[in-house]
Amino acid sequence: MANKLVIGERQFNSRLIMGTGGAPSLEILRKALIASGTEMTTVAMRRVSADTHGSIFDLLKELKIDVLPNTAGCYTAGEAILTAQLAREALETSWIKLEVISNEETLLPDGLETVRAAEKLALDGFTVLAYTNDDPALGKRLQDVGCAAVMPLGAPIGSGLGIRNPHNIELMRSLLTVPMLLDAGIGTASDAALAMELGCDGVLLASAVTRAADPVGMAHAMRLAVESGLLAHNAGRIPKRWRAHASSPQSGLIGTDARESPEF
């Protein structure tokens, strides 16, 4: 795995994509974004209202962080496609985090609607980063219809349950050729590190940072966790063993020649 994350035609030094949802204030979000080292962050598209301020877009411009609009809250391919088109018009980007959910309670992705939307958006020139279940076969479908990246969940959005099925994530990574980012479910730094150790190309998270007691501290932790996880993955972990394997030399121990334990 090279040092840079390459999605579509863009390269990123940071493999952490931070979402902006759930932050207690714009000022804390600003500090957390900086501490995370992220180069791209997600935003949602919503109707303008009296209390809408354009400040999130202004903040990202000021911090020179790329914006990745999402289709959060969409239940059908049609809704997601319209939201993506509106995001392209408003934010002048053809990048979209595609998210089509099946129900409000679990927020789990609707695989069929996601594939339908991904296919149409890719044909329409969008760079599609698709949020999906940790289903290797579905991930392959999303890759085949033209997604630039596939983003399986570790656990439901905002649950903080970590990676519930590490084997599926590892298996999925081995079957895909496009970048795969772990999206959703991260609760703490070790979850992010595990994602990278399993071979993920990056991690997307929001709640784990924005809803932490200290969002800025957690953003820093996530940055280090993603870097550490990647380093560990590339360095190659030792095989797991059923029994102990001493790391100190077995010969030359005091008392071994006399075959008796020294007396104290």
Binding site: T20, G21, A44, R47, T52, G54, I56, F57, A90
Partner: peptide, 8 residues
């Protein structure tokens, strides 16, 4: 009429 808000 839509705009970007914090999310995701």
């Amino acid at each position: 009429v839509l705009t970007a808000v914090q999310g995701g």
